[in-house]
């Protein structure tokens, strides 16, 4: 839109230890922000609670995948061997849930594995080829040994002065505004 002055994306605060960023997250959570996030090189235990996040929904995707896999296996084997072209092999029944179980079991696992990976990607809106934060040189250390807290400008409570002040109180070692 306005090519000359890039829009600010958010304000990022850098931290040196996981405990610092977790206490900062508690403060930002209590201040009532909605569009903010914590970035860490590894999952920090207790951070979901500090951010006020509930349980992840990936489980539903995996469950649906598993149910689909098992039903597909059973129905497929029944249709192929008992309906479409029945063959007598060793006098065994045309369809038995027991002999159909092992392939259906494998399909359950296969589909629920796909469900959990793709469910994770869908919920995280990945793959994402561009992200404003990934252009920031300081932020590159998030995969190395630094911890960041980012409040987006799109947050309804965001204000340049108050948000800065809040982040300064958390003991961040470096605060800056990142552009879109």
């Amino acid at each position: 839109m306005n090519g000359n002055s890039p829009k600010p994306y958010g304000v990022i605060a850098e931290f040196i230890t996981p405990a610092d960023v977790m206490h900062a997250a508690e403060k930002v959570r209590d201040a009532g922000y909605k569009r903010w996030d914590v970035f860490t090189p590894f999952p920090v235990h207790g951070m979901d609670k500090a951010m006020g996040l509930g349980n992840s929904k990936v489980g539903w995707f995996a469950f649906l995948g598993g149910v689909t896999g098992y039903t597909t296996g059973m129905l497929m084997i029944w249709y192929l061997n008992a309906v479409d072209y029945p063959l007598v092999i060793g006098g065994k029944p045309m369809f038995s849930p027991f002999s159909a179980f092992p392939p259906s079991y494998e399909l359950t696992i296969l589909f629920s594995a796909f469900g959990s990976l793709f469910g994770m990607m869908f919920l995280n809106r990945l793959p994402r080829l561009h992200h404003p934060l990934l252009k920031n040189r300081r932020f590159a250390r998030v995969t190395h040994d630094r911890y960041f807290l980012v409040v987006e400008c799109a947050d309804p409570k965001y204000s340049e002065i108050a948000t800065h002040k809040l982040l300064e109180q958390t003991g961040s070692s470096h605060i800056e505004v990142v552009e879109e």
């Binding site: 914590v38 860490t40 999952p43 951070m47 990936v58 489980g59 696992i109 919920l123 990945l126």
Partner: peptide, 27 residues
């Protein structure tokens, strides 16, 4: 895939990892 280390992402990631571990065990 544009991974940023976001904690909102780690939350889903860890759950998916747990489920994959859970289904790989009987596998």
């Amino acid at each position: 895939l544009g991974w940023t280390g976001s904690n909102r992402h780690w939350r889903n990631y860890e759950k998916a990892y747990l489920i994959l571990a859970g289904v790989s065990t009987p596998l």
